[in-house]
Design a binder for these strands. Structure first.
Lengths: 344, 344
DNA sequence: GAGCAGCCTGCATACGTTTTCAGGAAACCG
DNA sequence: CGGTTTCCTGAAAACGTATGCAGGCTGCTC
């Protein structure tokens, strides 16, 4: 249970003894304070170097009141989308001398609570929350920490001070427009489980695009998965069972599109000849599927760097924009084509 | 530059004042020490709860000499293989009350050094290194930290005390055997850049399998990429240029196999009808390619949990095995078939 | 009622830093 | 040469927590 007695690291006092000065002087010398004689400072630093001295973060943070760390909460690091999240954040943070605590919540409320608590104990200077639910559920606990918080792609950004999110409405409209421009008239929307804000927004964009093009909105063409890739085939089956099935499907995200893709292949239907598919996210693998997936790219790396920068700005006392919406980008690949075309 | 003055969190002394006791008693009450009267302990805990008290990790670690944190170094979190690494570790660590510091080195020596230094300052209790080069390059700095270190899939495991790695030789032999069993006689090895230990080991397994089956070893059938997926097509082109090209290729990893797959498709060659391909890793996307990729699965999740458990054992003072080799598993999909077959 | 054990509590110190304050020595000015 | 400034240094307090030690109170025993 208890850890073995660690060999105590060499402290500031130890090298004070070696250098025949007070530990105050050592502290100043190491922080390059102008208050100390250049020659003795140099001597002290040399001794510190030789004795392998490394300052204690915990001790320092006790007096400086900050730890130079930020916490990052993510639903699941194994999720390819979130892996990039963490990468961008860590990079930006490191450039500013901050270290990152990482935790994934696994969408488990108990664990989410535990994670927030743990970050609080470690006295992180700031927090980035990329787990959609955490923001909503633990708002009270979070704001009680009284540290800057940035939410990315969170469900209810408006309730928090700072956030960065993808421009869902615009992106969905752009995606649907693309299908319309190809000549599709019967375009389905395969959404996420009901009630997610991102889903609602994307659906709004879909309807806007239809309205712009004077296409009728048909409720039959709107189906929903269950939040997992596994639910997509059933939803797709409902669409195919219609008297007049759609010629194109706007999928909630790439994983959904992939599941649909496999399902269609099993049924002997071709993409994009028989059905066009467009996804959302531009996951790493979207480029490698067959056919490669046309999709709306979420610039995750930039979004995360933006979130990190926003947080770092806040930590350095600068004002920051409250809410940032990043535009998605249409990535044209081979899963969309004009309806009834013999080759994409 | 300087952070704004944080509102000081409520401390142990503050609730001592509220509860009309000394801060020592508060400390004991919160740690559930038997030395304190159950009723006052309860009262203290209630007051602490109400005032939103949260103990300070830095302050505590100053006296307990450990921080309940571990550091994880990884080359790139965006790399899908490593994303899983971190997931398994974080989960296991969290179950034992440890938080994880995450850093990716980006294979940049300066940054690697910086990261190690930073972890040292934060006084992490232990370290997991999943960045192949870090182990070799910064051995001195690492061992000077005098904390337990576990290496995963590192280049020179033997020089460190603890490590977990994939059984490369066995895995490669198994992969090659599979191709031989399908009837292939001309089997190529598309390796990584020269000099990597993992590549050397996999190559050894490849040769062993050939020898077992009394197949001749042909140096022409051994090519190398440049460490990136981009280098694979060129290597593949060399193989196709041979008088007698191979009927099957053992690819160093899945990304390489994918690059080859695309290259072959461009050339109008079919997989597996014209060429069989086998990969290594079983990345998330291997299941979604067309055709789905036959590959050797590295049980990353388990490996990382194993590494984390090993580290946690060490931290708790238990003895631990020094080196663990995990077996890979052959995942049969559709990218391999008997040579010249018309369908997989 | 004296002695004693057991339970609980507070005092003091320590952990490794940073920082304020005061002061000594040197240098400078008149 | 006295006074003042400048430069450097050390003493001391503080950050929030854990814990050894001493001691006070209660209740028990004889």
């Amino acid at each position: 249970m208890c850890s073995p007695p660690l060999p105590r690291a060499v402290s500031i006092k130890e090298i004070a003894r070696l250098a025949q000065v007070s530990h105050s002087t050592v502290s100043r010398a190491l922080r390059h304070s102008p208050l100390v004689n250049p020659k003795t400072a140099e001597r002290i630093r040399r001794i510190a170097e030789e004795s392998g001295y490394c300052p204690s973060g915990p001790a320092r943070s006790l007096v400086t009141r900050h730890t130079e760390t930020i916490g990052v909460i993510v639903t699941s690091i194994a999720d390819p989308l979130h892996a990039e999240v963490v990468g961008g954040i860590e990079e930006a943070a490191n450039e500013h001398g901050f270290s990152v605590f990482l935790a994934n919540s696994n969408a488990d409320p108990e664990r989410e609570f535990h994670v927030v608590r743990s970050f609080q104990q470690h006295r992180v200077d700031g927090l980035i929350v990329a787990a959609p639910r955490v923001g909503a559920l633990h708002m009270a606990a979070l704001s009680r920490m009284r540290i800057p918080i940035v939410l990315v792609n969170n469900q209810h950004p408006s309730e928090f001070v700072h956030s960065v999110a993808i421009a869902n409405v615009d992106a969905a409209r752009q995606a649907t427009r693309h299908l319309i421009a190809l000549g599709h008239r019967r375009i389905a929307s395969l959404g996420n489980r009901f009630g997610y804000q991102s889903d609602t927004e994307r659906f709004a964009g879909y309807r806007q695009a239809l309205a712009e093009a004077d296409l009728p909105f048909e409720p039959d063409l709107v189906v929903h998965g269950d939040g997992t890739p596994g639910g997509a085939p059933a939803a797709m089956a409902r669409l195919l069972g219609l008297a007049a099935p759609p010629t194109a499907v706007f999928c909630y995200n790439d994983m959904t599109a992939l599941a649909v893709l496999r399902h269609l292949r099993c049924l002997g239907l071709r993409v994009p000849e028989d059905v066009s598919l467009i996804g959302f996210d531009d996951l790493f693998l979207a480029e490698y599927t067959d056919p490669p997936l046309t999709t709306m790219r979420q610039p995750m790396w930039q979004m995360d760097r933006a979130a990190a920068r926003m947080l770092l700005d806040l930590l350095e006392g600068n004002a920051a924009v409250e809410n940032v919406q990043m535009p998605a980008e249409l990535i044209l690949r081979q899963s969309t084509a004009p309806p009834g075309s013999s080759h994409g």
